[in-house]
């Protein structure tokens, strides 16, 4: 599992990358009340704003962590946004992306590095 400075986690699974937000991010956001996900099949470029997440406090964007194609999204968190607070690292993944090129994940942080990053 790798972590971005934008508080996303990335996990490789059968040649695609599953992406969600970290527990730290979900705690900082507070209760999530709305999620908007990208369309399946869309081609995205790293740092594109591809998801919207709104909590009781504010709206934030989730950026594409790498170049690639969105191959699956998790509609369950659209129907029940509270899942993002309950299980951010598991059931409440956001989307699966097929990387345009391999190796794009390598530069992201390990779990230990991320823990240091968030202090």
């Amino acid at each position: 599992m790798k972590f971005t400075e934008e508080h996303e986690w990335l996990r490789e699974e059968d040649g695609v990358i599953v992406v969600g937000i970290t527990e730290h991010a979900s705690e900082q956001l507070g209760d999530v009340v709305f999620v908007e996900l990208p369309e399946v099949g869309s081609e995205v470029t790293k740092d594109d704003e591809i998801c919207v997440i709104e909590s009781v406090k504010a709206a934030s964007d989730i950026l594409a962590p790498l170049d690639g194609e969105i191959v699956e999204v998790n509609d369950a968190i659209v129907d029940d946004p509270g899942k993002v607070n309950e299980d951010p690292l598991g059931d409440a993944w956001f989307f699966k992306i097929k990387p345009a090129e391999p190796g794009q994940m390598d530069d992201y942080m390990s779990e230990a590095e991320y823990k240091t990053f968030i202090g």
Binding site: G30, D31, V33, V56, K57, G82
Partner: peptide, 9 residues
């Protein structure tokens, strides 16, 4: 602004 219970609860 909130306590550990959180805004919603």
């Amino acid at each position: 602004v909130q306590y550990p219970m959180g805004v919603m609860k």
